[in-house]
Design a protein around this nucleic acid. Structure first.
Length: 487
RNA sequence: GGUGCUAUAGUCAAGUGGCUUAAGACACCAGUCUUUCUAACUGGCAUUCGGGGGUUCGAAUCCCUCUGGCAUCACCA
């Protein structure tokens, strides 16, 4: 029986990279009729963030990556399964029990070194060009000294006692055998001064106790896996299979991080990306099917997914491809589905103003045309655009020129339909060809111009297909339906 | 710096010694259409698989080496 798990720590938003890890674990479990378990790793009391668990479960449930066991959402957040609790902070006695075994067998030891001393040692080592590492001062304290200091109430941590100059090997299922010498490893802290276990100790104990057969996680864990592997050996436990996934990178080939804009699942969903599309794209980032299929439902992914076809190199997150996949999903929606998805994106004011859409658009365009210096502020406040690259693009000199041209043309039109707008845009595009205006420059403003959203569902598409009147009529219908159901 | 991982086009990638003078998709470029579109359609886009050696009748695929990228080196996960 296959048992895989997703074990995030509740420190805020769910990163798309985390979602991919969760997805792979889910797909692998489902493919093999196994269980997908959700465990909470909340051993760092300083980084806890409120509502993280809600955010996490919402992201998982919206994308349909639903756990079979552990933390689940039923009316409210609860725990199900026989191997609980599934929240590490509720498992402290278990860790204490197992650390005692390690101490008794001489494979772990009390360390009374102060953080200050460790810091000094570290600096010294770095200065001398050495690999920073615990110097082992407390490795061989006498029983009596340990007892004395414990009785005295000295603060301590518990460290793993690694043998010297010993090769530790383990198998990574997608990279092969990996061997590391213990001299390159540190005597890892297993229990912190606050009594909580570190990640390294808690994962091993929990994964074993919860019967996890396959560990699929990010490659940042690869360097510490030898320690985990060694712990399994010390306890005499059967090792799970390890799979280390490469990271998702940004355009600069760096790990995609929160600092470069919105990388949380929530923000993508809020921008109008359909959960199915996000999941689809993430599945394809680092994995490829045997054939050339690109659009997959979750069910199809379960069927086709194969961990052997995972790529080992970091993949760059490409928003273009996501956009394309998203558009594929939007196109396949029925009108009813589409309008349901669309509803949140129609702001009240816009619905009210739609009859005067021409004037509204004019205002926007005129504002935009005033010049690059105010674009920044305007875009940020009105359209929530913060992507620096897009801002740059919009500030290109030619953009205001294009807007001026647009306004001029639109003024000549009594009633603006999306169709007419499009024609006008094309004309302008042709006119400016001589000036080598790239299609891309028109693209961005066009989108804002027509939808008022950078990434929202494609309003212009809807307008084109159904016509403005029809859009309004249907919206009213939806409105009524909702009101009726509320009664 | 030590250690580990990794290297096919702008991006995701297929490819595991001959079927490959390297699939497919996104992006990009050129064009067609203009009862819809940011759609659709047509065409273009790696003589070459990070560089250099070697093994072989034959290599992107095996070996060596150099170079680059990434990760990690916490009482964070």
């Amino acid at each position: 029986m296959i048992r895989s798990r997703f074990a995030p720590s509740p420190t805020g938003d769910v990163h798309v990279g985390s979602l991919r890890t969760a997805l792979y674990n889910y797909l692998y479990a489902k493919k093999n009729n196994g269980s997908f378990i959700l465990r909470l790793e909340d051993t760092d009391r300083t980084r806890l963030k409120e509502n993280s668990v809600e955010t996490l479960l919402n992201a998982l449930y919206q994308t349909k990556i639903i756990p079979d066991e552990g933390l689940v959402l039923e009316e409210e957040i609860t725990q199900t399964g026989e191997k609980g609790p599934y929240i590490q902070s509720q498992r402290l006695p278990i860790y204490q029990n197992y650390i005692k075994k390690l101490i008794d067998s001489g494979n772990a030891y009390y360390c009374f070194c102060s953080k200050e001393r460790l810091e000094t040692v570290r600096e010294e080592q770095i200065k001398n060009g050495q690999t920073p590492k615990y110097d082992g001062r407390c490795r061989d304290l006498s029983e009596t000294e340990i007892k004395e200091r414990l009785d005295r109430g000295d603060e301590y941590v518990i460290r793993l006692k690694l043998p010297e100059n010993k090769d530790i090997s383990f198998k990574d299922e997608i990279r092969g055998d990996i061997t590391v010498n213990t001299n390159d490893l540190d005597d890892q802290v297993l229990i912190k001064a606050d009594g909580f276990p570190t990640y390294h100790f808690a994962v091993v104990v929990d994964d074993h106790l919860m019967g996890i057969t396959d560990i699929i996680r990010g490659e940042e864990w690869l360097p510490s896996t030898p320690k985990h592997s060694y712990l399994y050996e010390l306890f005499g436990w059967e090792k799970p299979r390890f799979y280390h996934l490469s990271n998702i990178l940004n355009k600069n080939r760096k790990k995609l991080s929160k600092r470069e804009g919105d990388v949380s699942v929530e923000s993508f969903l809020n921008k109008g990306y359909l959960p199915e599309a996000l999941v689809n794209y993430l599945a394809l980032l680092g994995w490829s099917p045997e054939d050339n299929q690109e659009i997959f439902s979750l069910e199809e992914l379960v069927k086709e997914f194969d961990l052997n076809r995972i790529n080992t190199t970091g993949a760059i997150f490409d928003i273009n491809k996501l956009n394309w996949i998203n558009s594929q999903y939007i196109k396949n929606l029925t009108d009813e589905e589409l309008f349901e998805k669309l509803r949140p994106f129609f702001k009240e004011t816009e619905i009210e103003l739609t009859p005067q859409i021409v004037n509204l658009l004019k205002d926007r365009l005129e504002y935009l045309a005033q010049g690059p210096e105010i674009l920044d502020e305007f875009l940020k406040s009105n359209f929530e655009i913060s992507d620096p690259e897009m801002l740059e693009l919009l500030k290109e000199d030619s953009v205001p020129i294009l807007y001026n041209a647009l306004i001029e043309k639109i003024s000549e039109v009594d009633e603006l339909t999306s169709e007419k707008a499009q024609k006008i845009l094309k004309e302008i595009q042709k006119e400016h060809k001589a000036e080598k205006v790239k299609g891309k420059m028109l693209y961005m403003p066009t989108r804002i111009f027509l939808t008022g959203q950078m990434h929202g569902p494609d309003l212009s598409l809807i307008m084109e297909v159904l016509g403005k009147e029809e859009v309004l009529a249907r919206l009213d219908k939806v409105k009524n339906l909702v009101e009726e159901s509320n009664e």
